[in-house]
Design a protein around this nucleic acid. Structure first.
Lengths: 189, 189
DNA sequence: TCCAACGACTGGACACTGTCAACTTCCACG
DNA sequence: CGTGGAAGTTGACAGTGTCCAGTCGTTGGA
């Protein structure tokens, strides 16, 4: 067993619960009981009930950054599209983490992931872009990715437009409807 | 006093709490105490602790639909841009409602608001658009609006790109960077 | 070798929460 | 009248987060 086996056990158990039933019914005591330890044991690994959310968030942002980096590295065509796909893909594969990462009470950073996005935007807009343009386009891309991910993970989108069979193809179709991907191939007006 | 004064009092109080501190610390008993009634009184107006979220959600979707309808009616230029602005504006003005409306355990409809969006998309794409195109563009617009609203309401965006002074102008700048607004003015390729 | 410190964990206690149940009040309507 | 139901009351219960005082086993000096 590792040096802090219980910590990871409880963390995984919490993520699984959140992925299935959301963060609301999550009970510290029940996690402890499921792990076969006393109700106070988790407090030696997380300061708070709040603390477990921070831990999940940190783990999540590390995984997201990894997914984004891999997507760019293996992207054959447009890096912006690859970034969008990886963001939505991560959210769908790791709902438990994604649901926690952007909680307003957490103010987690995810700095590396954000910097990656800014870099891609900066390259795609070229050297003449103003700071405001970069800011606006970065926000547009993040918003699109985050909104699509949220609406898919939380369910309202499929409740409206019906079930989606091929998620990757769907994300690509949605991206195509916006002007956010493959900017470099387009003639400047 | 109205016929169900306590109901609205508790509802407003709950919305205010959620807008400030999020839905997590919301306590039925504390709401009752704040309203000056016994801890069981709210149960005569909401079946559950859950029920209050449904009530807030319904109220919120009615307000959102109203805001969208008004925005389209008074839009001088592009209805898609007006829709986006009204969506984000609603989220910022009514964080308490917005934070609740899309909870995965709620499956609230918001059917009228969605239909309004689809109508605007259908008109903007013209009569030759396929169903998949309409589906994709509707999703793109909803995602952009929802993502931007969520990132603004929950805070991570301003933590990254710095404080935003003029929200309306910012939303317009972001919309411009996406290809989602003012489609009708563009020449077909 | 001993012993002190320490991290992981246990169990008890407390205030607080959601919710079930039985009771009172009061007003509308036959 | 009276009777039924809606609104509100108090009491009780299990479950929860968290503070506090312990109990182990290990480990690092002396």
């Amino acid at each position: 067993m590792g040096p802090s086996d219980l910590r990871q056990t409880i963390l995984d158990s919490a993520v699984a619960h959140i992925a299935e039933r959301g963060p609301d019914g999550l009970s510290f005591r029940r996690l402890a009981k499921a792990a076969g330890v006393s109700h106070q044991a988790p407090y030696h690994h997380f300061v708070d009930r709040h603390g477990i959310f921070e831990a999940i968030s940190d783990e999540g942002f590390a995984m997201l950054f990894d997914a984004m980096r891999r997507a760019i590295a293996t992207a054959d065509g447009d890096p912006a599209a690859a970034l969008l796909e990886s963001y939505v893909g991560f959210a769908l594969e790791h709902r438990g983490h994604f649901r926690v990462m952007f909680r307003p009470d957490l103010c987690a950073s995810g700095g590396q992931a954000f910097d990656t996005l800014v870099d891609v935007v900066r390259v795609s807009l070229g050297p003449d872009a103003t700071i405001d343009e970069i800011r606006a386009r970065t926000t547009a891309m993040w918003s699109m990715a985050h909104g699509l991910a949220t609406l898919l993970v939380d369910g309202p989108l499929e409740r409206k437009i019906g079930p989606i069979t091929d998620h990757r193809a769907f994300v690509r179709a949605v991206a195509e409807q916006s002007g956010l991907t493959a900017v470099v191939d387009r003639p400047a007006v």
